[in-house]
Structures are given as structure tokens and as C-alpha cells.
Design a protein around this nucleic acid. Structure first.
Lengths: 228, 228
DNA sequence: CGCTTAATTGATCAGGGTCAATCGTGGTGG
DNA sequence: CCACCACGATTGACCCTGATCAATTAAGCG
């Protein structure tokens, strides 16, 4: 119910060729890296599912991962998008409440919790890293709550663009890895509302949409005001 | 800008008399307790503010704390309510984004991060506890996002009641420590909508409101269905 | 080149927000 | 002791944002 992907050997050439990926492996403390296994998942591949045992966690090397929950009536809520360098999959309890899926092709490193815990007992820096990653997840989750709570559609979409802009290579140009549906499920909106907000921003000269996945920020100040 | 409260000596009698409070102090690992300082805050007292340095964290001994953010236009979003035994106040970065206030009178223990970090380097169990607390905060924040994302007003209020029921002494009877405004700001609703949902539940025989702060759950199955 | 799926656009509807009036309760002081 | 006040909560009437339903356009892809 868990594995989704193709091969799973140690640090493939393909991953190391990619600069971002290389950076991501480097910033993990050396002993932690030893405990990990590289996995590749294809478009839409399931990394873990609701109900799985949370005995693994993961680090994104390349690609984007969505962590989400399906409600019993079919609605989907996306809790977070994770990009290169981020760690995800920490959960309390013995059954996961969330599931994780690859958006496009992804390369990840998976860590066995028990192994890392043992490492952590001996190695202070592993400990520090683990805590840091958990805190990053916490910060993300908190700012996501804030975003969903008391904000209008335009505010949500603007905030999302600004947030995503941080993960983009070239300044002012973002490549949306995810569909409108993904964005909608992340923001608690519908695809129609997301689309309307974007075209509204375009009409006002705040952004330009070269394609539906490629956004150029023309007036970041205006965008920040919209994000309120 | 941070301190809100009256005295701050070591483990006052008053706190130890209270059974819940006693439990809460006991479950902290022994060496961690040494590093803490007891503080008491009155109704509405500020524990920390936005912009403060996050060099402290806190454990609730008795009372309820709300952690929240004020938006620039005056709207308020409550991120979490914390009750006896819970730890709060972890934040990344060097300025807090959130603030914390006492709901009613509270007794807390405050810990200096630096001191605890030093302890944690020597003592594995302190480490474990810290991580556990961070994870609890993460789990709370995630389930809060889920609650805010794609749910109707009735679903939100029902979920809130069920969640709060876990912190209540007698089974099926809950004492709401917070105002309707607090509940509304936690759920991303207005006081009017919260009120309407509650009276609707009462009309349908799901709950009874002996007073506006005291809720008796008459049909918990129905409530769970409402929470969807 | 057509098929399939994603995205945009428009028209209508409803859930929840806003504004306003009333009720209830607890505290205070005459 | 009770009248009064202040504040929180409830209730009602109306409105607006964003959801829903439906049609069209655009973009991949075999």
C-alpha cells in the first residue's frame, strides 16, 4: 500500500547530475545520509497512504510532493507542497492520517525512523537536524492555518503565489508544478475561483500568464498588498 | 513587551494542590523541570507577543492559553488553544509571528530555550520530550488546517466540540473556557454563525446548552456525523 | 488530426457574513 | 435588595463572496 516507485538503490547518477538535487543531499548531515535510501516516483505516484505506519520519513531531492487528506465525501485537502531540501512524513500515532503523492517525477530519500533514532542518540547533529525539520513542518502548517482561516479568495491566491515564488529559480518568474485543482485544494477554494483570481490579477497588470503553468510577477508590491 | 503576570518563584503550593496541575508537572522529565520557572497570568494576560524573541517556551499547568495572530486589518486568527500538559511557544526565526494570551487565570512553566538545549545535549530523555512536544504541536496545526480548509460551518463547530470534549472532566459535559468570539476566530467563522450552529444542534437534540459556556452532548454519534 | 484532460469564462445559487435589534446575565452601586 | 448597566450571546433580515452548474477554449498526446 505504500511503495509507488521504480528503483531504490544508493544515490543514482541521474540525481547527482542535477544541481539542486546535489545541494539537497549535501545539506543533510553526513551520518544521516548513510541511513537513507533513494527512491524515484513517477507522476502521481503514491509515497505513503493514509493508514500506513509512519515508520519512515522522506527528504525531497527533486520534484514536488503534495501531502494531503481525502475526506470521506471525496473532497481533498492539500496540507502542504514540499520541494527540494524539505523533509516530510513525520506523524504521531501508529497510523498516518495523511497521504503523500508525487507531483510530476520525484527523487526522494527515505529514512527509517528507528534507524535514525538510534543514530540520533549518538550524534547530536542528527538530533538537531531532526528537530529543525519538525519545526519547519510546524511553521509551514501554522502559516497554512493562518492562510485558510480568515482570508478572501484573492488574498489566498496572492499569498500562494508569493510563497511559491520563493521556490522558483528566476526572480519574478514561477513555474507552477501543480494543477489548478491542486492549488484549489491547498487554498480551500475551487478551480474556478483560483482561475478567476489569476485572470483578475492579469487584467490588473499584477502578473502575466505566459502559459497556465508559467507566471511572471509584474508588480510584486501590488501582489503583497493583495496578500494583505 | 512580554511578561504579563504576577509572581514567578519555584512551584507554588497553589499549583500543587490542583490535581491536574500536579499531573502536568510530574510528566515532565525531572531534569527539564529544574530549568523551568512558574508564572501566573490573569484573564487576558499576554504571555508573549508578536515580534518577541522566541527564546522561551511554555508548559500549561492549569487554565487555557490561546495562541493567535492579528492581521493588519484587525482580524484575529486563533491558531490553537492549549490546555494543562501541553507545551507551546516553539517558533523558528528570531521574531515570533504569533502571540499567546491567557484565557482566564493560568499557571504556566516557562523554559529558557538555551538552557534546555544544553540540558538536551546531555540528557537523551529531555531530547525525546522536546521532539515529542514539537510533534504534538505539528499534529495540532495540521488537523487545524484540515478543519479550516474544506468544511462548512456546522462541520467546523461540531468538530470543535468533539475536540474540546477530550479535555473535559466529565464525559459528555464540556465547559467552554473561551468566548464565542474565540471559537469563531479559531474556526474562521463569525460569532453569529457559531451561535446559530449551536442553537441548531440544540434544536435537533444533539446537544443541550445549560448555560452558554456549558454544553452537554446528548447524541455524540449524530455530532460525529455532523463533523463528517 | 482528433481525443482527452486542464483551464477559462459565464450565469445562477446558497452559505455564511454583515448590520441591527433583542435577550440574558452578572456585577455594581444607590 | 433591587435597579441599572455593560457585555456577551442570540436572533432576524438582507447582502455578497465564492460555490455550483454549464459551456467553451486551450493544450497535450497518441
Amino acid at each position: 500500500m505504500t511503495v509507488a516507485a521504480s528503483n531504490s538503490n544508493h544515490i543514482p547518477n541521474q540525481a547527482l547530475k542535477d544541481h539542486t538535487a546535489w545541494m539537497a543531499t549535501q545539506e543533510v548531515s553526513e551520518p544521516l545520509r548513510m541511513a537513507g535510501t533513494v527512491i524515484n516516483t513517477a507522476e502521481g505516484g503514491e509515497i505513503f497512504a493514509e493508514g500506513d505506519s509512519p515508520d519512515m520519513f522522506y527528504k525531497v531531492i527533486s520534484g514536488v510532493v503534495r501531502v494531503c487528506k481525502f475526506l470521506n465525501d471525496g473532497r481533498r485537502q492539500i496540507e502542504a507542497f514540499h520541494v527540494a531540501g524539505e523533509v516530510f512524513g513525520f506523524e504521531l500515532g501508529d497510523e498516518r492520517l495523511l497521504c503523500a503523492e508525487a507531483i510530476g517525477d520525484c527523487t526522494l530519500i527515505s529514512y527509517r525512523r528507528r534507524s535514525v533514532d538510534i543514530l540520533a542518540q549518538k550524534n547530536e547533529s542528527v538530533n538537531r537536524h531532526l528537530f529543525q525539520f519538525a519545526m519547519q513542518n510546524l511553521a509551514q502548517a501554522q502559516s497554512h492555518s493562518l492562510l485558510l482561516g480568515r482570508r478572501g479568495a484573492a488574498e489566498k491566491v496572492a499569498s500562494f503565489l508569493l510563497g511559491w515564488a520563493k521556490h522558483s529559480d528566476r526572480k519574478g518568474i514561477l513555474y507552477l508544478a501543480m494543477t489548478r485543482q491542486d492549488i484549489a485544494d491547498y487554498l480551500g477554494l475551487t478551480i474556478e475561483t483560483v482561475s478567476r483570481s489569476l485572470t483578475q490579477f492579469e487584467r490588473n497588470g499584477v502578473i502575466a500568464l505566459s502559459s497556465s503553468r508559467q507566471v511572471r510577477i509584474l508588480n510584486s508590491e501590488a501582489l503583497e498588498n493583495l496578500a494583505a
